[in-house]
Every structure is written in structure tokens, then in C-alpha cells.
């Protein structure tokens, strides 16, 4: 991953440790160097800066937090300096993840594969997507799936951060790409990019890996705000579950944070309802006028 130009290249200044008595295989040894935020080098071939820093807190809380570094990095990393060909190691998610060969798991990865093959990240001709892989979004040193009970704002922020780390221009307040979206900032705080930029999937997987290009993404407000059951359920039911888990049923009943503006709207019912109410008011007014006339007659002609 490319870092900003002000980065300090610390690798060169590091003193190599004295010949180790035994190969260092524990994470602590690796993190002695790799926990440094500025650890990086400039690739002599491409001139790109290659970031070698690992955020230890993110790593230990990630889905891979229980693993040893060398479980994935199988080259001869126990020696320093690392052999020069160690950098050519190939890591593949499926290499490990397909070891779980239960039917469910295989089907899951097959559906992810199929979805990803149609994703804009796989089909686009843009030069930026060259070399796109699972790791481009799922940073193996920090990724973890969100859990019910976490703050939704934090899940949304972390999720969107993944997209925005490449799609930087979208942050620009004058960017035209989401100008059509009412309450743009509010949407960005409350829903993930993925909620509009993926199709609804029928599989167990809550979110599809087929990322849609802008022109195919959801632009229809009612899909979330009123009738489309799957999208609405995805948003509303998740929030309801989260509210109940963290706040208890009384707070849920009073505040119901899940409610989305316009959820109950239906043009036909609203029109019908308002017409019937309007007509009723007219009839009542006419009835009252008739009674008033009758009352005047009694005054003019007392019995």
C-alpha cells in the first residue's frame, strides 16, 4: 500500500540484531520491528513505497488475531535480514480458507468467487484495479466481521473507510458523484457504501461480493425507505437487533432508532386517505351548514 511522501524510511537505519541463538518464530519478535508505524521501503523496481508496518492492536483484534505471523508468512522470515526472495512469497486466502472443506464452507467460497468475478473490481478496465485481490479490501492484519452489539456508527465508519482508502476523491465535499443523494453526509454516517453498491443476494452471505458500478447501484429511495423487503429488512432488522442487544426493550420501545424516515409512506394509501378525510370534512361542513339553516328556521318561526 502506498503511503504519503512524508513517511520516514526507518528500515535502513535499523541495526540488525546479533546472530540469534534460536530462530525467532513468535509474533513478538516480528512486531519488534513491524509494529513501527513508519516501517517501509521504496521498491527499487517500481519506485513505490511499500508499507511494512503492522498495527499490533488491530492485528490482535482481527479475525486472524489468534494466528502466528509465520502461519501465513511461510518464507524464511525467522532470520534477519530476511532473504531477498522472501518478499516474493505468494499468499492466498483460499489456500487457507478452503482447508475447511465442509460443504457449507465450499459453497460459501464458490458463491463469493462467482460474485467477485462480476464485481466492478474484477471487470473494470481502469488501470487502478490491476492487481486487485481479496486483500485490497480485507486487510488480513486488521479485518474482522462486525458483531451485533457494536456501535452501528463505528461499523459504518470502519466499513466505509475500506472503500474510501482508494476512492479518496469521494470525500471531497464538491465531488459530484453523490450530489443527487439528499442528506448525503447523514447517509454516509448511517449506511455503508455496500448497502447501495451491492445487489441483494439470496445466499447466506449478508452482503454480496459483487460491487456494482455507479450506474447499476441503488438510487431508488423507496428500496430502503419503504417497500423493498430485503433491503429494508437488512437495515431495519439489523438496527432493531442491535438496539435490543445494547439498550434493552424499554429503550427500544421508546426510541426505536431503527425507524427510517418515510418507511410507512405509500403514495396510493396516502392519496386515498387524504381524499377520504378531505371529503369527510366537506360533508361535515355541509351537514353543519344544513343544521344552521334548520336552526334559523326555528328562530324565524317559533312553535
Amino acid at each position: 500500500m502506498a503511503l504519503s511522501g512524508t513517511l520516514l524510511l526507518t528500515l535502513m537505519t535499523m541495526a540488525p540484531p546479533a546472530t540469534p541463538a534460536a530462530p525467532a518464530t513468535d509474533n513478538k519478535s516480528c512486531l519488534r520491528c513491524h509494529a513501527m508505524a513508519t516501517l517501509a521501503y521504496r521498491d527499487p523496481g517500481t519506485g513505490e513505497i511499500v508499507d511494512l508496518a503492522i498495527e499490533p492492536h488491530a492485528l490482535s483484534h482481527s479475525v486472524h488475531g489468534e494466528l502466528d505471523c509465520i502461519d501465513c508468512h511461510e518464507g524464511e522470515f525467522d532470520r534477519y535480514p530476511h532473504p531477498s526472495d522472501a518478499a516474493n512469497e505468494t499468499l492466498s486466502c483460499l489456500g487457507c480458507h478452503e482447508k475447511d472443506d465442509t460443504e457449507d464452507n465450499i459453497a460459501r467460497y464458490q458463491s463469493i468467487d462467482a460474485e467477485y468475478a462480476e464485481s466492478v473490481h474484477a471487470t473494470s478496465d481502469a488501470p487502478e484495479v490491476e492487481g486487485f485481490s481479496c486483500h485490497s479490501c480485507h486487510d488480513p492484519h486488521g479485518f474482522r466481521a462486525s458483531q451485533v452489539g457494536e456501535k452501528i456508527a463505528a461499523i459504518v465508519r470502519d466499513g466505509n473507510q475500506v472503500c474510501l482508502s482508494c476512492h479518496e476523491k469521494l470525500r471531497d465535499p464538491f465531488s459530484p458523484h453523490h450530489a443527487w443523494l439528499p442528506n448525503r453526509e447523514k447517509h454516509w454516517d448511517a449506511v455503508r457504501c455496500l448497502d447501495c453498491h451491492t445487489p441483494l443476494s439470496d445466499t447466506e452471505q449478508k452482503v454480496s461480493h459483487r460491487i456494482l458500478p455507479p450506474e447499476e447501484s441503488n438510487r431508488d429511495c423507496v428500496n430502503c425507505h419503504s417497500k423493498e423487503p430485503s433491503l429494508l429488512n437488512r437495515l431495519y432488522q439489523y438496527r432493531s437487533e442491535e438496539d435490543l442487544a445494547t439498550k434493552g426493550w424499554l429503550n427500544k420501545a421508546v426510541f426505536n432508532d431503527a425507524y427510517v424516515v418515510g418507511m410507512s409512506r405509500n403514495a396510493t394509501l396516502d392519496l386515498l386517505g387524504l381524499i377520504v378525510i378531505g371529503l369527510t370534512l366537506l360533508v361535515l361542513a355541509a351537514h353543519g351548514y344544513g343544521r344552521y339553516k334548520a336552526y334559523q328556521r326555528t328562530k324565524g318561526d317559533p312553535k
Binding site: 419503504s226 423487503p229 429494508l232 431495519y236 432493531s240 437487533e241 426493550w249 426505536n256 394509501l269 396516502d270
Partner: peptide
Amino acid sequence: LFSIYLPETLFGLGSVWVVAMTHL
């Protein structure tokens, strides 16, 4: 308020929508 205890669909429509239209 407690829609998560409802089935995902009612009469083939999303539960939350059915609830919303009934209430309305």
C-alpha cells in the same frame, strides 16, 4: 418496535412493510 421477532416475510411481502401499511 419488535419486528425482529416476526418472520422475514408475511403473505410473501417483507414483514416490516406489511406492518407499516397496516399501521398506516
